[in-house]
C-alpha cells in the first residue's frame, strides 16, 4: 500500500441541460437553460478512510457520487482512482479492470435489488460478471459466504428481495457490493430510507466491514449524526460547490465555513441540554439561476459587497471570503449531532 490517495477528484463539473423541447424554445424565444449541478469540486480520499459529502437536498452530492463511480460522465474535470483516470478515453482497458474494485450502495434498498431475481443471483451477478468463480458451486459458495459476512443466512439466497425488510435488503446490497472483492464503496445515503432503529445496525456493519476488509468509503449523507458516526474527513457541499473540507473531528469541534456552522447549529440535540437551536435560515437557491459571487451570500450573516461580487477560492479547505479575511472570528466550537 502506498500513501498516495486512492481517489483523486479534480475540478469536477456537471452541467445538465434543462431546456424545454426545441420547438417550445423556438416558439417562446427562450434560450437554452442549463443547471450546474456540480461546479469545480476537488477532493482526495485516502485508503481506508471514510470521506463524507454532506449538504442539503439539491447540493449535488449524489451527482458527485454518480460521476465518481462512472455512472454519469462529467462535463469537465477528472476522477482518478488508484492512478487510473475514470474519464480519460485512453485508460479504457485499465478502467475495465478497476471497475471490479468500485461498487455503490444505493439509497433505496427497495429499488436497488431487481425484484424478479433471487437474492443469490443478485449477489452472484458481480461474481459472474467479473469471472471470479470457476463453476456454479464456487459461485454458490461465495454467495453464501457473502451473505454470512453481512449477517444473513446462506439459505436466504433462494428468496426474493420482497421477502426481506429494508434493513435486510440493505445488507443484501452490501453483500452484493462486496461480492466482487471491491475495496472502494460509494454509499449514497445508505441509511436514509431505513427505520432509525435499523440505521445504526447498518452503519455498524459498514464500519465493521471497513475494519476487517480495509474498505474505503465515499459516504453521501445529509444526516450529520450518520456522518459523525462514520466519517474521517468531511466535505460540505453547497449548491454544487465544496465549501469546506476538513477532518471530521475539526468540523464538529470547530466548524469554519458559515454554512457548516449553520448546519451544525440546526441539529436537534437529543440530550436536551438546553442549547439554543437555530433553524437553518432560508432555502437553497434555484441552481438554474444561482446567486452571484459566493452562492451562499443571500443566507450568510457575514456577507459583504465582495461576497456578492466574486466567488471565493478554496483556501486551506474553506471557500469563504469572511474566513480568509479573518472576519468570521475564531472557529467557535459547536455542540454537534446528537449521535
Amino acid at each position: 500500500m502506498t500513501d498516495a490517495p486512492l481517489v483523486q477528484v479534480t475540478g469536477l463539473r456537471r452541467v445538465f441541460d434543462v431546456s424545454k423541447p426545441w420547438l417550445d424554445r423556438v416558439v417562446a424565444r427562450e434560450p437554452r437553460q442549463t443547471l450546474k449541478a456540480v461546479d469545480g469540486v476537488s477532493f482526495e480520499i485516502r485508503r481506508g478512510e471514510t470521506f463524507a459529502l454532506v449538504g442539503e437536498s439539491g447540493s449535488g452530492k449524489s451527482t458527485v457520487a454518480r460521476m465518481v463511480v462512472g455512472l454519469l460522465p462529467p462535463s469537465a474535470g477528472e476522477v482518478v482512482i488508484d492512478g487510473v483516470s475514470m474519464t480519460d478515453r485512453k485508460d479504457a482497458a485499465r478502467r475495465a479492470r478497476l471497475r471490479r474494485r468500485i461498487q455503490m450502495i444505493f439509497q433505496d434498498p427497495y429499488a436497488s435489488l431487481d425484484p424478479r431475481w433471487r437474492v443469490g443471483d443478485i449477489v452472484a451477478e458481480p461474481i459472474r460478471a467479473f469471472n471470479l468463480a470457476r463453476d456454479r458451486r464456487e459461485v454458490e459458495h461465495r454467495v453464501g459466504e457473502g451473505l454470512k459476512l453481512v449477517g444473513l443466512d446462506p439459505a436466504d439466497a433462494r428468496k426474493f428481495p420482497h421477502e426481506f425488510s429494508g434493513g435486510q435488503r440493505q445488507r443484501i446490497a452490501i453483500a452484493r457490493a462486496l461480492a466482487a472483492e471491491s475495496d472502494f464503496i460509494v454509499c449514497d445515503e445508505p441509511t436514509s430510507a431505513l427505520d432509525v432503529s435499523v440505521q445504526a445496525q447498518i452503519l455498524n456493519l459498514m464500519r465493521d466491514l471497513q475494519d476487517r476488509l480495509g474498505l474505503t468509503y465515499l459516504l453521501i449523507s445529509h444526516n450529520l449524526a450518520v456522518v459523525r458516526h462514520m466519517a474521517t474527513t468531511i466535505g460540505v457541499m453547497y449548491l454544487g460547490r465544496l465549501v469546506e473540507v476538513s477532518p471530521a473531528r475539526d468540523v464538529f469541534a470547530a466548524p469554519r465555513h458559515p454554512y457548516t456552522r449553520m448546519l451544525l447549529d440546526a441539529v436537534p440535540d437529543l440530550a436536551m441540554s438546553g442549547r439554543p437551536r437555530t433553524p437553518v435560515q432560508g432555502e437553497i437557491p434555484n441552481p438554474i439561476a444561482p446567486p452571484s459571487g459566493c452562492t451562499f451570500h443571500p443566507r450568510c450573516g457575514l456577507a459583504d459587497e465582495r461576497c456578492r461580487r466574486e466567488a471565493p477560492a478554496t483556501i486551506e479547505g474553506v471557500a469563504c471570503h469572511a474566513v480568509a479575511e479573518g472576519r468570521a472570528g475564531a472557529a467557535r466550537p459547536a455542540r454537534a449531532a446528537g449521535g
Binding site: 463511480v69 462512472g70 468500485i102 436497488s112 425484484p115 451477478e125 460478471a129 467479473f130
Partner: peptide, 13 residues
C-alpha cells in the same frame, strides 16, 4: 432509472 439497473451498469453489464 431504478437503482438495480444502475447497479448492473456499474459492474459493466
Amino acid at each position: 432509472n431504478k437503482d438495480y439497473v444502475q447497479a448492473a451498469r456499474l459492474i459493466g453489464i
